[in-house]
């Protein structure tokens, strides 16, 4: 699904309220900053659905504090890549390391076997995921959504969880919606809450899967602006997106996928200024990236 027409929407809005979210949660800044070195590594990762390859020998390294955008045509394996990272989809071969720790498998007497559910959950706790369809818990208020994981997975106290939730709500600018239910919020607000829900787990890595694709064009900007804040604060992020302007402005690197493979992996500026293959040129022109206006 290409979000061509919505491209670049909300940019004005983003700029017209400079830094409000940033200043609101400025004291959190250090929390997201790591010590450098690769946080995420994919080594020769492959995944088949039946006979269909979804990932073929994918290699990717993401350093702490980096924002990597993943772009590419529909069906190229972007979602599968993200879902393998937190093992929502078990990969067939290769290795995925988060913080040096193998995801989903372990060595046992020289064999690689499926890791325990407990260990997989230990890794998932530290990886935040945001979905295209928000997937908020409809039976819980905004606050209920935010404290669910901290209370029942991290098992911190209720007051700590509520403090975290308030900080996250401040960051996304929805302090007045604590008691609202998800279906009382706009799509953009729901998606911001979904980001906040992930942040409340204090993850070291955030995965975003086309988080603005289900939104009305006028709501895209508010969500991208929250993601910008996170990137600026040093959160490590892997962002599958069709928002090329966001990729160009926020991502450190852009990874282009096609037919289950990573075709290129370059600094964002290079990707847009000097497309390294004609296919990328074609892909970009289909998305009709507006020329840099400044």
């Amino acid at each position: 699904m290409l979000a061509g027409p919505s491209l670049g929407q909300g940019r004005e809005e983003t700029r017209s309220k400079p830094g409000t979210l940033l200043s609101a949660a400025a004291e959190q800044t250090t929390r997201y900053e790591g010590s450098g070195g690769p946080l995420l590594q994919l080594i020769d990762v492959s995944k088949y659905f039946g006979k269909t390859p979804a990932l073929s020998d994918v290699n990717l390294t993401v350093n702490r504090g980096e924002t990597v955008a993943i772009v590419g045509p529909s069906g190229s394996g972007k979602t599968t890549l993200l879902r393998c990272i937190n093992f929502l989809v078990p990969y067939d071969s290769g290795r995925i390391l988060v913080n040096g720790r193998l995801v989903g498998y372990r060595e046992q007497q020289g064999n690689t076997v499926r890791d325990t559910g407990h260990n997989v959950n230990e890794i998932r706790k530290r990886i935040g995921m945001v979905f295209q369809q928000f997937n908020l818990f409809p039976h819980r208020t905004v606050l209920g959504n935010l404290i669910e994981g901290p209370l029942y997975v991290l098992r911190i106290t209720r007051s700590e969880a509520v403090t975290r939730a308030q900080a996250a709500l401040e960051l996304i600018g929805l302090m007045d919606k604590v008691e609202a239910y998800p279906d009382q919020l706009s799509g953009g607000q729901q998606q911001r809450v979904a980001i906040a829900r992930a942040l409340c787990m204090e993850p070291e890595l955030m995965l975003f899967d086309e988080v603005t694709s289900a939104l009305d064009p006028e709501l895209v900007g508010e969500v991208l602006s929250v993601m910008r804040q996170l990137a600026r604060k040093g959160m490590t992020m892997v962002v599958v997106t069709h928002e090329m302007e966001f990729a160009r402005d926020v991502a450190d690197r852009v990874v282009f996928m096609e037919a289950s493979k990573i075709v290129t992996d370059q600094p964002a500026s290079d990707f847009f200024e000097r497309p390294s293959t004609p296919r990328i040129g074609a892909f970009l022109s289909r998305l009709s990236l507006p020329r840099n206006s400044d």
Partner: peptide, 16 residues
């Protein structure tokens, strides 16, 4: 099923 996935992505076990 996305509800289950959202819960699991928070680190919840199937039963939780």
């Amino acid at each position: 099923p996305e509800q289950m996935e959202a819960a699991q992505s928070l680190g919840m076990s199937y039963w939780l």
